[in-house]
Design a protein around this nucleic acid. Structure first.
Lengths: 196, 196
DNA sequence: ATTACTCCATACGCTAGCGTATGGCAACCG
DNA sequence: CGGTTGCCATACGCTAGCGTATGGAGTAAT
């Protein structure tokens, strides 16, 4: 049987906050709606947290740790920088929830609490991308530029998938699409990665 | 002297709504805050509009018309599809306000009113991009794929410029950056557009 | 069995924003 | 000069959400 607990924990609330965040944005991370969602009242919430702000902080901490770990895990699995990038982009299509979470957080331009964390995660990812391009022999400036391009494409894909999923090819054609993306963003992509 | 009017018009309210939208997102499009901003009370607002919803509708109509006109204007000025695309991307760096407006609207995933308009504008732009690529000799599928890529890059640049402007090269280096973008997204870019 | 501690429910006050009702003032109109 | 109309202020009720205060049921310990 699954973990049915009679009593909630702070992490349960944080997790529910992330769920609400991914589905309906920051405005949905509200005490009373979350309480209804969890089948309790806010009396429960204010036992576990001092304020809504603290809940956000906890949820953000969870999110940042996971995003960071995820990148490190991806980095460890693949040594060839070109394959790293290719894999990274394929996985961008992965978790719908992760994408929506990122978009929801990145677009909370109020709330300095959130923008700070987003900023760190973004810097982390950009650095990772820069290292990939540097490992392919690019000088620092070119690596930074290509990293910005690649990350832009990544962000745009998230948004396009959310707002106009029909614009991105499905299933069979998706691989051809990612092939085009690889050619555009990874110098020497065809020469290095396509088996012939 | 500039147009100092003693009495506001519905368009003044709609314009103020777009300003608030660009600066602080959809949540800032609120009757009473806008009234304070305009130096009046909401008594004025409810004379010009029946509800907040109607204000949003008016502001969206303004926005959509301008975005559409803008694209048409760009399309008329340049016939070579490659140069069209290059110009389009250079201008993506143009109006900060336009970019923030788009992001604010695109991220209002609630409010069907907004998502509908955003959807139309997006479809319009994607069609424009597809035509550019088709005019360069791409078959329908490839044109659609490249259009999606180009639009993704565009969206990503908007977001990156908002959230991490330091990641995008400034001034002198910006042109080299856009050159890289052109190479990545416009087949035959170097051959066709670079003077030597 | 009494005590203490954990987790939650209930009830309350407070704020911001939406929408309504009504009054007022100035300009124009007859 | 009196009336009408256009534009706005003021005052009110209503809702959703934040935070607080307090009570209460269950459990564990002594």
């Amino acid at each position: 049987m699954s973990t049915i607990r009679q009593t909630l924990t702070a992490d349960d609330w944080a997790e529910a906050a992330l769920d609400a965040l991914a589905e309906d944005g920051v405005r949905a991370v509200a005490v009373e709606p979350l309480a209804r969602r969890l089948g309790v009242t806010k009396g429960s919430f204010y036992w576990h947290f001092a304020s809504r702000r603290m809940l956000l902080q906890a949820a953000l901490a969870l999110w940042e740790r996971r995003e960071t770990d995820e990148v490190l895990a991806r980095a460890a699995e693949e040594t060839d920088p070109r394959k790293r990038l290719a894999r990274l982009f394929r996985e961008a299509d992965g978790s719908r929830r992760a994408g929506r979470l990122y978009l929801a957080l990145a677009n909370a331009t109020d709330s300095p609490l959130i923008t700070e964390v987003v900023r760190r995660v973004m810097a982390h990812r950009l650095a990772f991308l820069r290292e990939c391009y540097a490992a392919m022999g690019a000088d620092a400036e070119t690596a930074a530029a290509r990293a910005a391009m690649a990350y832009s494409m990544f962000l745009g894909m998230l948004q396009l998938r959310r707002d106009a999923p029909e614009a991105i090819p499905e299933g069979e054609r998706f691989h051809e699409y990612m092939h085009l993306v690889g050619e555009a963003l990874i110098p020497g992509y065809e020469r290095a990665l396509v088996r012939r």
